[in-house]
Write a protein that binds this DNA or RNA. Structure first.
Lengths: 158, 158
DNA sequence: TATTGTTATACTCTATAACTATA
DNA sequence: TATAGTTATAGAGTATAACAATA
């Protein structure tokens, strides 16, 4: 957890507020808001029977074209054994296809199917809607400032 | 996860960067940075044999004085059955004491011991150090802006 | 010998439900 | 009947290690 104290769920739900000694820390806030955003996205994507991880795989494939499981996993920080389960799910639903790479027959090329592109197109607005709800307290200028700061943090530690 | 794609670990570690289609979303960034902050804090507190949740309990007790397990749990969003395990650990190490409440003998009052206060005093700088590392890419003014924005988000959804 | 993907397994975290002792 | 805390259990989520096929 962040500079946390272990908010598990609901820091900001209906429960008592966390003490100022914790909310004073940006690390705690990042952790609490990250969890809130994550949980809300998970709830929204459940309607499409997708977990955030599945959505991420679809996004990477749409973005980077056919690539191997390993490459997708590296982009998302997903372990290769977890990737198997995730791709099994997506393939079982006809959203993704595994094709043996002729050049290296150990590897699969993962490709988006039309159904996968369609599902991704439905998921996008759901994810955007969650973000809209999370960012609701901020006006457009504040959102832009926040995004720039967060991006700087992500990049800075690479 | 945030507006994520399921970064599991290492979005920002040594792996490939996530695609722009994901980093474009503030929700994804919140989720990724929240996890980074959380993991780093967990690593730092491990030296004191504390998890972030344990640290949070100590902070609440230092902040709010003797209160019941239920109250602490509500402040941190920790389930009551999880609270039992957390307090067992803290009590076993002599950092916290359980005292029956004379007014309501079902409830315990949790109190910080001197050892608990001492451990908390050691943990504070560790947590602050993690935050310093996470926020390193930002100067003081940017950190203040970020904190204000995050606080507004946390409060706004209460 | 190293690598892609697979399988089996174990571990952590957390939630749920049933129980106790009080109220 | 309801509440504070406890216990037991089950479910996610994820990591590790051993294995197959290929390089």
């Amino acid at each position: 957890m962040g500079a946390d104290g272990g908010e598990t769920r609901g820091t900001g739900a209906g429960a008592d507020p966390p003490p100022e000694a914790l909310t004073r820390r940006s690390g705690f806030l990042l952790s609490a808001l990250g969890r809130r955003s994550r949980d809300a996205t998970e709830g929204a994507l459940a309607r499409l029977d997708l977990k955030p991880m599945h959505y991420g795989v679809l996004v990477v494939l749409a973005d980077a074209g056919p690539v191997t499981q390993q490459v997708v996993g590296a982009r998302l920080g997903i372990d290769k054994s977890t990737m198997v389960v995730v791709v099994d799910h997506l393939e079982g639903r006809g959203l993704v296809e595994r094709r043996r790479n002729p050049g290296d027959r150990r590897a699969y090329e993962l490709t988006l199917t039309d159904a996968g592109r369609h599902t991704l197109a439905m998921a996008g607005p759901l994810v955007a809607g969650v973000e809209e709800a999370v960012l609701a307290p901020l006006d457009e200028a504040a959102r832009a400032r926040l995004h720039a700061l967060l991006l700087q943090l992500l990049r800075g530690a690479d």
